[in-house]
């Protein structure tokens, strides 16, 4: 059986690790694009490549740093860890920025980020994950698809652990919700179900 053994949610309000709030963004203090460099300073990350990344990759990088802090990656071989991500608008935020550069000199350093799965690559490089990848696009967060696909990867033995979830950045709006999925029950783990993913995804949203 598969479990959600960790989670990290970041949105305009702040960040949650394993369903507990760990920081708040000071509302109105800066544009959303300034939030992530502030987070980098706050947590004292040492990864200068972060500053070369576009907003989508910075967001996924930050969520993965927080999700995987303290995780025993040594329990798995690099090729046993999968990364399966999703969002609604692909890399459109950076696509707009790249289109602007084509009016002058097209920028290769912006163009390379005009793919949704570059954030997958950045997470794989940072954490040395060499297993399965997939990037799905859906109008909204689709935990049913992710539980089916990732569940199959783990049940069939194609992967032994998976980082999965949602990473979206468009204009002023952003949200990341990453989940660590393993076939073992650790302290605080909850069963890997669409319902649990959806509940954690909505953790910062007011109750209806």
């Amino acid at each position: 059986m598969e479990y959600i053994t960790g989670s990290c949610v970041i949105d305009g309000e702040g960040g949650y690790k394993n369903e507990k709030k760990i920081f708040s963004f000071a509302a109105g203090s800066s544009q959303p694009a300034g939030y992530l460099p502030a987070l980098y300073q706050h947590f004292n990350w040492q990864y200068p490549k972060f500053f070369k990344m576009d907003n989508l990759s910075r967001l996924g990088f930050a969520a993965a740093e927080l999700l995987l802090e303290g995780w025993e990656t040594g329990a798995y071989q690099p090729q046993e860890v999968a990364v399966v991500l999703s969002n609604a608008n692909s890399s459109l935020d950076t696509d707009y920025r790249y289109t602007q550069t084509t009016k002058d000199i097209p920028s290769p350093s912006v163009f390379v980020y005009t793919l949704p799965n570059i954030v997958t690559g950045e997470i794989c490089i940072r954490h040395r994950f060499k297993g399965e990848n997939a990037f799905f696009l859906s109008t909204g967060f689709d935990p049913a698809l992710l539980t089916r696909y990732v569940g199959y990867l783990l049940e069939a033995g194609i992967a032994r652990a998976c980082i999965t979830g949602w990473v979206e950045w468009l204009g002023e709006g952003f949200k990341a919700a990453l989940f660590l999925i393993e076939r073992k029950e650790t302290a605080g783990a909850v069963p890997f179900t669409a319902g649990n993913m959806d509940r954690i995804f909505k953790i910062s949203m007011p109750c209806e």
């Binding site: 794989c124 490089i125 060499k130 297993g131």
Partner: peptide, 21 residues
């Protein structure tokens, strides 16, 4: 099957090990 090089975002693996896997 699918794999990732975990090497570079715009350049392939130097060894081909990951595609080979």
């Amino acid at each position: 099957a699918v794999s990732n090089d975990a090497n570079h975002i715009s350049g392939p693996s130097r060894t081909g090990r990951e595609l080979g896997d």
